[in-house]
Design a protein around this nucleic acid. Structure first.
Lengths: 210, 210
DNA sequence: AAAAAAATCATGGTTTTCAATGATTGTCTT
DNA sequence: AAGACAATCATTGAAAACCATGATTTTTTT
């Protein structure tokens, strides 16, 4: 199936419990040298310094989004296989992860065998999608309203807004004109098709964009 | 420390990954016969039929709340030690779990050693609380601030606000004066100690008050 | 190098929220 | 019956948000 030289596999998840679970699971398959991290940034450092074959990457991390880390990893090391592993079952998030170069996506409630099977798939160059993920991807966006994608600056400003800061305060903090902040506000409202920032912040919070 | 007969330990969590992690962790300590379940109800069935010394119980389960299962387990089998294991860091949830008879509570991002240490504590008859949980319990107002209690009308109005409605619209819908709506707004802001409705809605949404 | 996207700044006007303070009328609890 | 709480209505004024429209400068992507 694949060469029996051991592959280097990196796991990134901020729950030591999950790390332990994946490690123990993969140890049974016995083909990997496993390196576990709870921070995206330290995993990234490792990957830059060491040849890494596979990364299992949680989407919600304490120090940033797995979406971004996936992109960064692929920039530094395009041949590394990156598989998202998350509770996050948002359709748009899955697509965006794959768009950012991800080789697969598995929900955390996936069955043990399924996980192993998926990883095998990925190693063989196939897309590694767990059953439930496939279902989510297939069902056209009925109940699932597409979340707009935000730029860095927009994210930054949205976060400040959600903390109750006024445009003036945000402008001060970021050393930009209040006018610029208000432009970003306007763009955010359009992107989300929201009536005002209150509604927008609710949507964003519910979808863990903040 | 405790007798070396092996203890029966039940794990309930709907993530096979986490189950695997806990199993592998506890295997290293080598004192338990482990039984794993992804459904609260099937775990409960097992506990009724078999002597169970310890239960590690997730709070969010597909078939109900761990809070309820804890209570049920304690009814059927008062001597069984029940430890909550969850991502849920809500102060009030922790207290309610312990109120329902729980012997301890551990956050899922706890360190591996901490988990083992906590379980040991529980076996010795102590409360098993991970470090972070203790911190949360001790500071009522710091990072984890006490959610104010809202009246019917306030809830109703807050919900409308969070949907992007203006005071005028809400007043119209509820057949009351706009002035009244604004008074409620003011009271809400005071209760939450929030700077504005945006921050308030974020807090309320995060805590599933809406 | 050209096109597209992101970030920046601008004017002028309307609507909405928020602050400070107060008051009246029910309703429930002790 | 008294007190506490909830829900209602009120005035004035300042601050902030939102709307419509447009434009320039960086970055990024193709």
């Amino acid at each position: 199936m694949y060469k029996d030289e051991s592959l280097n596999l990196v796991i990134v998840d901020d729950h030591p419990m999950v790390l332990e679970g994946l490690k123990s699971l993969l140890d049974q398959v016995k083909k990997f040298k496993i390196f576990a991290f709870t921070k995206g940034s330290s995993a990234l450092d490792f990957i830059q310094e060491n040849k890494t074959d596979i990364v299992l990457l949680d989407i919600v991390l304490s120090d940033g989004s797995g979406l971004n880390f996936c992109q960064l990893i692929k920039q530094k090391s395009p041949k590394t296989i990156v598989i998202g592993i998350s509770n996050q079952a948002e359709r748009s998030i899955i697509f965006r992860f794959l768009e950012n170069g991800g080789n697969g996506y598995i929900l955390k409630n996936a069955d043990v065998n399924e996980i192993i099977h998926c990883i095998d798939n990925a190693i063989n160059g196939d897309l590694a999608l767990s059953k439930e993920v496939q279902e989510i991807m297939l069902r056209p966006s009925a109940n699932n309203f597409e979340l707009p994608r935000l730029t860095k600056r927009e994210q930054q400003i949205l976060k400040s807004i959600s903390e109750g800061k006024t445009s003036a305060e945000i402008a001060d903090n970021l050393f930009i004109s209040i006018i610029t902040v208000e432009t970003h506000r306007r763009n955010l409202l359009q992107k989300f098709k929201a009536k005002n920032m209150i509604e927008l912040v609710k949507i964003a919070t519910e979808n863990k964009l903040i």
